[in-house]
Design a protein around this nucleic acid. Structure first.
Lengths: 124, 124
DNA sequence: TTGACATATTCCTATATGGGAATATAATTC
DNA sequence: GAATTATATTCCCATATAGGAATATGTCAA
């Protein structure tokens, strides 16, 4: 089997450095035209359009017609699966907090965010 | 140019679903032998070994000889770059916490952390 | 040593690139 | 309509897979 398609999921989409650059360029929240991205990334226009196409298919960005140009906006919510997955392993590098304190911290955060209703994470 | 090598960086390494499964299987923190991973993942032994090779090169896992088997351990710290990058965009999907609450949550966590480092110190 | 077991490596192939060049499509202006 | 601008798409190719099969390497046991 060959490598999975970049459009298969978010993890594959963000594996490409240029696409992460595009995402970073859109991090401000405002929509940016393709030409503007071409300038910032110093990449050819077709290349940028193709990367945007990948990000579009995965849902990370959305387009809107604005005159004769297309402005792209970041839909960062699609990055949440990545965040959630990585966060599972966060305790391994946050050494300033040991297990007990981490649990306390989490409890404090949940108290403050009383609105949220995540299922509680199990810990041995 | 073709896609970047999977061994080039962590983002590429975790783009492959089977490798994420391997990482998940090692999430417990204890070292696991290759054969055990083969059983859990229902993947051929060579395939598992190859994926482990990729994860090794990137530094996500480390090996140790244990008798005639090699036990692999997760080095989750290598995932931190991914965590940091994704976290930049976290505010876009964590709507249940508004800015003030998020700040309060962070302050609470820091308070708990600093208590650890300076047991009797007062909060700043 | 011989044999059995555990893991790594090599060889192979079908497939999916990412970028450049050229071209197509679409909107704007003259 | 014609020329111009902005963007998308197509064609091409060198490259890097991921997995299966076969093989090599390494380690233990009798």
């Amino acid at each position: 089997m060959p490598r999975a398609a970049t459009t298969s999921d978010v993890f594959n989409a963000i594996a490409e450095p240029r696409r992460r650059e595009i995402i970073n360029a859109l991090a401000g929240g405002t929509a940016v035209a393709v030409g503007e991205l071409v300038k910032r990334l110093r990449l050819s226009q077709p290349a940028v359009s193709k990367h945007l196409g990948v990000l579009r298919k995965v849902g990370i960005v959305s387009v809107a017609k604005h005159g004769q140009r297309r402005v792209y906006r970041l839909n960062a919510r699609e990055l949440k699966p990545v965040h959630d997955w990585v966060k599972t392993h966060e305790r391994f590098w946050s050494h300033q907090l040991d297990r007990i304190q981490e649990r306390a911290e989490r409890a404090a955060a949940e108290r403050l965010a009383s609105v949220n209703q995540h299922p509680k994470k199990k810990e041995k």
